[in-house]
Structures are given as C-alpha cells and as structure tokens.
C-alpha cells in the first residue's frame, strides 16, 4: 500500500507562557514538537504498512526546521520524507495550505491512504485534512480510532461525540486520526541513526505548477484581524476545614451563596 502521512511541526503549547507585562505569548524558547495527533496518525499508518505491506511517506509544509519532525518520522517507521517549503507559501491559511499540499502530493504520486492528525495544537482548526481531501477529490473519514485494510476496502472505527461508527470506504481515502488506543512507538538507536543518514528532499514552488493567486496571504480568504491573550481566571477560594466532612459542607455553603447551585 502507498501510504502518506501529513505532519506538522508545532510549538509545544503546554510549555507556552504569557508575558505578564506585555500580555503576549512568549514564543521564544518554546520547544518545537511533532504535532501529537500527527504522531498517532503516523503510528497508525506504520502499523497498517506492517500488516499490509507497502511504504509510508511523511510530508510536511513548513520552514526548513520542520525537517526535524520529518527526521523523527523517519526514525519511527516512515520510509521517506519530503518537506514542502518556500518563502512565498508564508501567510497561507488552511485553504491555501491544503491547496499547496495537494499540489505537492499529486507530484509525488498516487496514494492509497492519506493520514492526517485530527488537528494541529497551534491552529486547532482541524480544517487542512478535509480540505486536502476535497482538493484531491477523495473520500474522507474524520476522527478515526482504528483502521483495517483488505484489498481495496478500508474498514475504520470512527469515534464521534459519544459513540463509535464502523465505516467502510474504498481506497483512495483520507483519514484524520484522533487518539489511538496505542501510544506512538519509541525510535530505536538504529532507526535514529538510519534516519539521520536519510536525505529529506524539499519541494519548492518551482517544482509545482501553482496558481499564485491561491497561495500565501493572497490565497487566504481568512484574515487574522487581531490576537489577544484571554482574560486569566481570578484566584479561587481555598477550602480546607478540619475534616473532609466539614470541607464538603463549607463547599455547599459557598456554592449556595454564589448561586452556583
């Protein structure tokens, strides 16, 4: 099977701090990581390859340093990796990004299954996956927790709201992955060394036949007007009485007072 995984390098949003003076995000010194949902997607893809045979290709659109997460992908089961990068791609919203990615994917060849993480933890939009499927005119299933493939049929378990749906679709299909029951594997010393020796090729705008009005800021229908740090919750009330019983009673008292209950 020809499997593709779309990944993104994101800041570790759990490490982001707010500058109390300027009330802005401190982005320097925040480590960059492989988007956690993409890590689950990659693990699912590699397991599918291990069961059904084939190759796993990792692709990412980003600046040069995004090669670090592609290297990570190579050390945990991806067979090859490509970076899609060019200054003129800068400022692209999800529509422009998915357009560029779809052009790069078409250039690489035909894929049976395309995996994406359900959303990136910086943008949090969950839009690129389905938009990519639309550009490529292939079927999509979102929030996938499990997948099996037999010949051209894919059977997926979709986790949505409070239930699961078992869905059947045919290749080619794009799947966006939520959290899987299994954790992504560790690299091994050997796989890390091999990954370091593998070349990651960059695809630039010169390699693609793009409509320039559909990329970058120009190609982005959504525009960011402003950003601000949300109002922080004010300090809460601490209850610690002599016994658990008394604490519970005090809690109910204050909740009644504040009309919460």
């Amino acid at each position: 099977m020809n499997i593709l995984v779309c990944v993104k390098q994101v800041p570790d949003t759990t490490e982001i701090k707010i500058d109390p003076h300027s009330n802005t995000l401190i982005r320097t010194g925040v480590p960059s990581i492989l988007n956690p949902f993409d890590a689950y997607a990659l693990e699912m893809a590699v397991r599918l390859k291990e069961k059904n045979g084939g190759t796993v290709t990792a692709i990412s659109m980003g600046p040069e340093q995004a090669k670090n997460v592609l290297k990570e992908c190579l050390s945990v089961g991806a067979d090859q990796a490509f970076l899609v990068s060019d200054r003129i791609f800068g400022g692209s919203d999800t529509l422009a990004t998915s357009y560029i990615l779809s052009a790069a994917i078409c250039k690489l060849g035909e894929f049976d299954v395309i995996f994406c993480g359900k959303q990136a933890i910086d943008g949090d939009t969950a839009q690129v996956g389905p938009e990519l499927a639309e550009h490529l005119d292939i079927a999509q299933v979102t929030y996938v927790a499990e997948v099996e493939a037999t010949d051209r049929i894919l059977t997926v378990l979709r986790e949505i709201d409070e239930r699961y749906e078992k869905i059947e679709t045919q290749i080619p299909t794009l799947l966006t992955v939520n959290k899987t029951a299994f954790e992504p594997r560790y690299p091994t010393v050997k796989s890390k060394l091999t990954a370091n020796r593998t070349t990651i090729n960059t695809i630039t705008s010169a390699d693609l036949d793009l409509d320039l009005t559909r990329i970058g800021l120009k190609g982005s229908p959504t525009k960011v007007k402003k950003t601000f740090v949300p109002v922080q919750r004010k300090k809460g009330l601490r209850i610690m009485e002599n016994s658990g019983r008394q604490s519970a009673i005090r809690l109910v008292e204050v909740l009644l007072d504040a009309k919460i209950i």
Binding site: I16, D124, P221, V224, T227, F228, V229
Partner: peptide, 18 residues
Amino acid sequence: TRPAFGGNLMATISCPDC
C-alpha cells in the same frame, strides 16, 4: 473570535473577500 495555541491565545478572524 476563536482560541488557538491550546486556548493560550485568542484570535479575531474575518473573511472580507469571499
């Protein structure tokens, strides 16, 4: 208006041309 960066940042977006 929507949250980004895991809720650490709020962004106000518009779609003026489409």
